[in-house]
């Protein structure tokens, strides 16, 4: 009887944990769908794995906002912008405009909405802060899932609080 009880309890626990796991993380990084080619020579130069931006941005964060495993690891890697250029391509990263502190533009309500977006819909990663490697920051990546694979989708990298950076597509935040 105890054996059946153990089985029942363990099964229930497994199902509860499984259900909780399903709600725990955004799962866009599990795999890429609808990839048009399985050839390395087509996949890599055309960045065909880009359906889930989190896959690109999440893995390579290193200390000092550097990118890991690019070129010579001992050299310290790349800066945050160079990291984006490396993964997205030079032409895709526009750093010509001065950085804007959204905290001065947005009101408390807008910032609260962005914070909620970070908590519920973005993919969060705890990394050394780009502005201070000694501290930890949340780097959140979020995008409008309906725009997946949309050509010319624009992304904005911004800082919304002391310890939170947010990288989002321009359907979520647009700065004119």
């Amino acid at each position: 009887m105890r054996k059946w009880m153990s089985l029942a309890l363990t099964s229930v626990l497994a199902l509860l944990v499984g259900t909780a796991n399903m709600t725990f993380a955004i799962r866009d990084g599990t795999l890429t769908t609808a990839i048009p080619s399985f050839k390395a020579s087509a996949i890599i130069p055309n960045r065909l794995w880009m359906e889930a931006p989190m896959q690109v941005l999440h893995t390579f964060m290193g200390a000092n906002g550097s990118m890991l495993f690019v070129g010579q690891p001992a050299s310290g890697g790349l800066s945050f912008l160079d990291r984006l250029r490396f993964k997205l391509g030079d032409e895709q990263v526009d750093s010509s405009k001065s950085p804007i502190d959204l905290r001065r533009i947005f009101g408390d309500e807008d910032l609260a909405m962005l914070s909620e977006f970070v908590q519920t819909l973005s993919y969060r990663s705890l990394q050394p802060c780009p502005h201070n490697p000694a501290a930890d920051c949340v780097i959140a990546v979020g995008w409008n899932r309906e725009r997946t694979k949309e050509v010319d989708m624009r992304w904005l990298a911004t800082r919304i609080s002391e310890d939170t950076y947010l990288i989002v597509d321009d359907s979520i935040v647009r700065v004119e």
């Binding site: 990084g29 599990t30 795999l31 890429t32 769908t33 609808a34 990839i35 048009p36 399985f38 050839k39 390395a40 020579s41 996949i43 890599i44 794995w49 889930a52 896959q55 690109v56 893995t59 390579f60 495993f69 690019v70």
Partner: peptide, 22 residues
């Protein structure tokens, strides 16, 4: 996998592997 284009090669490790394979 082919019909739905399923793949997971987003990491540089995977790039190296499929480049070596090719």
């Amino acid at each position: 996998a082919r019909q739905f284009g399923l793949s997971s090669v987003a990491f540089t490790d995977g790039h190296t592997i499929i480049q070596m394979a090719e």
